[in-house]
Design a protein around this nucleic acid. Structure first.
Length: 554
RNA sequence: UGGGGCGUCGGCAAGCGGCAAGCCACUUGGUUUUGAUCCAAGCAUUCGCAGGUUCGAAUCCUGCCGCCCCAGCCA
């Protein structure tokens, strides 16, 4: 794959910025920001935005601020804020200097609201929510002016001061911009810019009982930080006139340019904080970092390298098209990265005992195997070989056609990194289940092919006595429909078999020694990661990251 | 039926008047002690549709068709 982080893909936002720089706009400076609300964990969709904002800033020698858009205290928490900081760092980005918060600007925001009132461009309304909805009109009919719209400026000032002072109950009054109730753009029909809400804020505590709305806050925060390009998703396109209106009507010189791009949509997953919250709160998954989640912390725990997410984000590109990206694209970048960095090892997920009759009972050989067959520099590891071993149940058949390149009764197969064995007997229990294979090995086949015959198959194995019991979690997609977000109730699309717990897997000793979060390739199976929290050398726990590309089963 | 957007290969996505980039997927060969990796080759006479302008149109114009977003005191 030739797409790398060093070769930014062409997209319309880059073109705009390139033009701006060529025209000397903003003195050639580029300043972006990533503005999450701390009301949930970051997901793949955010990764796209992070890569865009931080990537653009870096490319043009600018910087990117991290700013928490914390204007709705009821939904926000410090846990979320902390997780967001961690996830951004994990993804490999550094924000410019200290973290910003919309709440840092509450005092200034209040001042600009007063400016608007003084200019006759904002008024205190006392319609209740339901009345306001009626006055707003519909998509096809204009709205009506609020009866309180023409309040005197002095009265508006007085009321707004008292709103701040806490003289009124929640929701009694709101501050509204005075724009145009007949605008075809509903966002311009005298939008609310402040509401009374007695909620404890994670940063300002109980200092405020009025909080500014997004549309008023975001543009001013951008301007205060000297943002040049304010990149956001498509649903804010209709808000751009309001973004511009606010900045055009207050005494702030800086006027950032808002540019919208389409959200990332990944097939078979969900990228909505609200829905992800539901999965967690209703226990469909085991927390925000469940490896099946499309959260950054979930993908981290799943074993996705941060670099693969960055490559993926570069590869999907930026456009204004509503799209659905194949999960396969992400997985391919994950494999790509892991193929290069992951040490190899052997693990048997569904053990079938094999007794090698012509191998001495007490003998244990420490065979040497490469840690990475394409990268000698990674060195070698010891793999113990003994008379009793395990192979995977799926690697044996009593009868099979020539396409089956594994072990068959009365035939031979190569044991990876070891000898060629021949199976001559299958032992079964009363129910007819295979319990053991009796084989012989050819001691002339270590590191070389047998003479006079071809052995086409290679299977993996572990020593029965020297391997370590491990728990392996194999994942399938969390949803069984490509677009769960489109369902009436996305919970009905949840795949009941998204997690398979394998409690009796066996891994070679080198794998048991893994450090938490260390990634491996279990040869012929896929990529696996030692669980970040539950893995220990005594009780190894691995999560499947992604399977190897498999042309046999597909 | 108001307003704002968007339609280029199976999935992403460049291109912005002069022979349709790239990635993923897929197909076919080769290497291989991983049915992996790797290597080589193939994969849109056509850009939602229909007209028009032009020597020349995915790119410009006109008209249709389809899809997405907006009526929170959420962001």
């Amino acid at each position: 794959m030739s797409t790398t982080e060093n070769e930014p893909a062409a997209n319309f936002i880059r073109h705009i910025i390139l033009d701006d720089i060529a025209n000397g706009k903003n003195g050639g400076k580029v300043q972006t920001r990533f503005p999450p609300e701390p009301n949930g964990y970051l997901h793949v969709g955010h990764a796209k935005s992070i890569c865009l904002n931080f990537g653009i800033a870096k490319e043009f020698n600018g910087s990117c601020n991290l700013r928490f858009d914390d204007t709705n205290p009821e939904k926000e928490s410090d846990e979320y804020a902390k997780s967001i900081e961690q996830d951004i760092k994990w993804l490999g980005f550094e924000w410019h200097k200290e973290i910003h918060h919309a709440s840092d600007y509450f005092e200034q925001l209040y001042g600009y609201a007063v400016e608007l009132i003084e200019a006759g461009l904002a008024f205190v309304d006392e319609l209740n929510a339901e009345q306001m909805r009626e006055y707003r009109g519909t998509l096809t009919e204009p709205g009506k002016n609020s009866p309180y719209r023409d309040r005197a400026i002095a009265e508006n000032l007085d009321l707004f001061t008292r709103m701040r002072a806490g003289e009124f109950p929640d929701s009694k009054y709101v501050l509204r911009a005075k724009i145009d109730m007949s605008s075809p753009n509903i966002n311009m029909r005298d939008p609310i810019i402040y509401r009374i809400k007695r909620a404890h804020h994670i940063r300002t505590g109980d200092k405020w009982c009025i909080y500014p709305m997004y549309d008023f806050t975001h543009c001013i925060s951008d301007a205060l930080e000297g943002i040049t390009h304010s990149l956001c998703t498509l649903e804010f396109e209709d808000h751009r006139p309001l973004y511009d209106w606010v900045l055009d009507n207050i005494s702030l010189e800086c006027h950032p340019q808002q540019i919208e791009f389409s959200r990332l949509a990944l097939a078979y997953t969900i990228t909505s904080k609200r829905k992800l919250t539901t999965l967690v709160s209703e226990k469909f998954v085991d927390g925000w970092d469940d490896p099946r989640m499309s959260t950054l912390s979930g993908m981290r725990r799943r074993g996705y390298p941060a670099a693969s997410l960055r490559h993926f984000c570069t590869a999907v590109g930026i456009s204004k098209k509503n799209h659905v990206t194949d999960m396969g694209l992400l997985e391919q970048y994950v494999r790509d990265e892991l193929n290069v960095i992951a040490p190899r090892g052997m693990a048997v997920l569904r053990p079938l005992k094999v007794v090698i009759e012509n191998y001495p009972e007490d003998k244990i050989e420490q065979l040497e195997a490469p840690i990475h067959p394409q990268n000698e520099a990674m060195g070698t590891r010891k793999v113990p070989f003994s008379r009793e071993i395990y192979i995977d149940q799926e690697d044996f058949m009593e009868e099979a056609n020539n396409k089956f390149k594994r072990l068959v009764l009365d035939k031979e197969v190569r044991l990876r990194n070891a000898y060629v064995i021949h199976c001559h007997q299958v032992i079964k229990d009363e129910q007819g289940n295979m319990t053991e294979l009796r084989c012989t090995y050819d001691n002339q086949t270590l590191g070389k092919n047998p003479e006079g015959r071809k052995v086409k198959g290679v299977i993996h194995w572990v020593s029965a006595s020297e391997s370590v019991a491990a728990e392996v979690r194999v994942y399938d997609r969390l949803f069984n429909t490509p677009n769960p977000a489109a369902a009436e109730d996305f919970r009905t699309c949840i795949n009941p078999n998204s997690l398979s717990l394998i409690s009796s897997a066996r891994v070679e000793p080198s794998l048991a020694e893994a450090k938490p979060e260390q990634c491996f390739q279990f040869e012929r199976e896929g990529y696996f990661v030692a669980d970040r929290y539950q893995h220990s050398p005594e009780k190894p726990v691995f999560n499947m990251t992604v399977g190897l590309r498999d042309t046999w089963n597909s």
